[in-house]
């Protein structure tokens, strides 16, 4: 790791102020991606602003079907929250399967979405849940937040403070993990909610797209007819714009999208 200057922020306002100093400043949330990237020198910030001690970023609020998760809430806290489990168990289940227990004790939802790793789990949930990303400056719809590989709509110095969504009637997430890294080689989040009084099925795919998380129109069309795992059977997902790498070809990932969508739907209905 290259030399750096560490600053501990006491509040969001303090973090913004601290970020104005230094040449190449990065915010540090749980550090579960950033610190490994710094150790391998893929990332070399001159200054780190630690957001890990800011109380206002932590906690989960559930009011009826409305859920707000503070950006500094760890995956372990999301997984264990009973109120969230009661209204949207799919998100609790997703959080319980990120990384391993030690990673879940440090990694945060805000850090995960701000990093927008193309194989991260939360982006799929946020996109399928039509969630809103709240920052210290504005509110951004998930569909406009995730803009590409490791790219988001966040501007310099902007901090994610919370994620907000309405719990859908049904939701489920399933991923096919890389056997070594355990990251999703393809993960699918399905949600059946309401939009303008009508049923609204949204399906988001992570780990497979060349430009990161995306919605699968083909699976959405099939599940809109009937929200059942059998409805996904035989659906063709085009492999265009899907990733091809040492682990899986685009065609293989296209097939995985269908299988994961089936399993996620079965989970949502169980």
């Amino acid at each position: 790791m290259y030399s750096l200057n560490y600053h501990r922020a006491s509040s969001v306002a303090d973090a913004v102020k601290l970020a104005k100093k230094g040449d190449d400043v990065k915010y540090l949330a749980g550090g579960m991606t950033l610190i490994p990237a710094m150790k391998t020198r893929l990332s070399a910030p001159s200054d780190l602003i630690d957001l890990g001690h800011i109380g206002e970023l932590k906690g989960i609020k559930v009011s009826g079907k409305n859920v707000t998760i503070g950006a500094g809430t760890t995956h372990a806290e999301v997984a264990a929250n009973e109120k969230l489990k009661a209204v949207c168990p799919a998100v609790s289940d997703l959080a319980a399967h990120i990384g391993d227990p030690a990673v879940r004790h440090k990694g945060t939802i805000g850090g995960s979405i701000a990093n927008n790793d193309p194989a991260a789990d939360y982006p799929a949930a946020l996109l399928a849940l039509d969630a809103t990303v709240v920052t210290n400056k504005r509110e951004i719809a998930a569909a406009k937040f995730f803009t590409g590989l490791f790219e988001t709509a966040l501007k310099d110095g902007e901090i994610v403070t919370a994620v907000r969504f309405t719990a859908p009637a049904k939701a489920g997430y399933e991923k096919f993990r890389n056997p070594a890294s355990r990251y999703a080689m393809t993960g699918v989040f399905v949600a059946k909610g309401k939009a303008n009084g009508k049923d609204d099925v949204r399906v988001a795919v992570t780990g497979a797209g060349e430009n990161g998380v995306f919605r699968s129109k083909e699976i959405e069309a099939a599940l809109s007819k009937k929200f059942d795992a059998a409805a996904v059977e035989g659906v063709k997902v085009p492999s265009k714009n899907l990733m091809s790498d040492i682990h899986a070809s685009a065609d293989y990932r296209a097939a995985l999208v269908v299988v994961m969508a089936k399993r996620a739907t079965a989970k949502a209905n169980s």
Partner: peptide, 13 residues
């Protein structure tokens, strides 16, 4: 009180 990987945390943190 929580298990963490000490190779992925700074001492100052």
């Amino acid at each position: 009180g929580k298990a963490v990987k000490s190779c992925t945390m700074l001492a100052v943190q």
